[in-house]
Amino acid sequence: MSWFLVHFAQLVFYVMAACVIAGAVGVIAFKSPVHAALSLLASFLGVAGLFVLMEAEFLAAVQVLVYAGGVMVLFLFVIMLVKARAIPREPQYVNRLVPAAVGLGVVLALLLGAGMWASVTGAPADAAALQRVAGVQLGNTEAVGWSLYRDYLLPFEVVSIVLLVAMIGAIVLGRKEPGKEGRA
């Protein structure tokens, strides 16, 4: 049974990883922004799946709700709004893709070759550790929540201002400015 579980987890990992990478490649490769956005969605969902696999259920939920639900809708909405004529055709981007990809591939290989992860060894810590706050055993969601409001209260508050600023920004930037537009 545990043999099955281990292999099932491996299977899930590789499927999700493939989903994440394929989605990312799609974002770069698709010319149509709608297709790119759908690829991005696939990638997001793959990441969410990996979060579940790592027993970070709360994060997985946030990932799905915020990214797949919020950000993606925003993207699609804007893509519809700006219409096709505004989308550049980018005929020669493949030419730029090849050298950039080769360069970064080399960097990647170097990093991996240099044993970048050599220090990360051994089995992961007990999953229960992630559900414990101040010695009390909770669920993952509760644990993260506790942590957020207790230890990370300050960043949490600052992030709430960030959201307020983003709201102001979206309104300020998105609203139609009366008067003459396009003064150079």
């Binding site: 990370y152 300050l154 960043p155 600052v158 992030v159 201002i161 960030v162 600023v165 983003a166 102001i168 920004g169 300020v172 930037l173 400015e177 008067g179 003459k180 537009e181 396009g182 003064r183 150079a184």
Partner: peptide, 27 residues
Amino acid sequence: LAAIYVGLELMALSTYILAGYFRREVK
């Protein structure tokens, strides 16, 4: 680093908006 990072983002996001605040100017 968490506090520094969120402070940084608050500053950066506000500044992005300010850079584009005068919307009639192409530049």
